[in-house]
């Protein structure tokens, strides 16, 4: 009887341990003010700078700063299925590969990396015209941190 109970407990643990990582296609949920950045462990508060990715294995990583996402990704070398960032203006999720990034010294991001993202190039260039900075794509952004 005890053996059965123990087996049931172990099964329960296994289910609990696996429950958080069910794969999905869309952008992951971020609970602002509650979720903690996987890189710096600080609370994610501001959607404009928040970023996330989903690994091939279905795990979700959440970040309070686009730069932290890239740092974490390069450091861990995880296989990533999809990167997500927010449009700085609308706060809507955008696939990072499709987004246009601006690095601007006048933007104070949560961890000081200074990157914001836009869904369209026009918005990015308007932002640069107003605040200064440079426009780049995701591949260039990875290279800033020594990525491929």
């Amino acid at each position: 009887m005890r053996a059965w109970a123990l087996a049931a407990l172990v099964l329960l643990f296994w289910v609990a341990a696996c429950g958080g990582g069910a794969p999905a296609d869309g952008p992951p949920e971020v609970r602002y003010g509650e979720d903690v950045c996987d890189e710096c462990h600080m609370i994610i508060n501001d959607a404009r700078f928040a970023a996330a990715y989903r690994t091939v294995g279905g795990d979700v990583r959440r970040f309070d700063d686009i730069g932290d996402m890239v740092v974490y990704y390069i450091r861990t070398g995880e296989e990533v299925a999809a990167f997500w960032v927010h449009d700085y203006g609308t706060k809507a999720w955008v696939r990072a590969e499709e987004a246009v990034f601006v690095r601007s010294p006048s933007v104070q991001t949560p961890m000081g990396h200074g990157f914001v993202a836009f869904a369209g190039r026009d918005d990015a260039e308007t932002f640069v015209a107003q605040h200064g900075g440079e426009v780049m794509g995701f591949e260039e952004l990875l290279k800033v941190y020594g990525g491929r």
Partner: peptide, 17 residues
């Protein structure tokens, strides 16, 4: 190793283990 197990932190399950 499995942070979701924190749910069971104060339960008899943890004790049993």
């Amino acid at each position: 190793r499995y942070p979701p197990l924190q749910l069971f932190r104060y339960s008899p399950v943890a004790q049993a283990l």
